[in-house]
Amino acid sequence: MSVPNVPSTKIIRLRYFALLREQAGTAAEQRPTTARTYAELYGELQACYGFSLPVGQMKVAVNDTFVELSAPVQEGDDVVFIPPVAGG
């Protein structure tokens, strides 16, 4: 899918876990965004909340499926940024 040239405002849902939840001060929010890609969206959130981890350390899941950070943001997305994991 190509990324549109003119940014439009989309309403998305975000959920936060672990470090991002603590830094955002919330577990979930609805948010209007003009970000075209998830990488841009993360930049927007970083500016807002001061997330300490760089986008290069993030993965992103949309509607419970991993997608590329360069994929286009869609209206109604359920977005979760995934910092480095530590299971086991």
Partner: peptide, 23 residues
């Protein structure tokens, strides 16, 4: 599981503030 599962670990220490640790 250690590499891929979306689960995060916070360690609580006797002598330092708690921290999220990464694999």
């Amino acid at each position: 599981i250690k590499h891929r599962l979306p689960i995060w670990k916070k360690e609580y220490y006797a002598t330092a503030p708690a921290a999220w640790v990464f694999c």
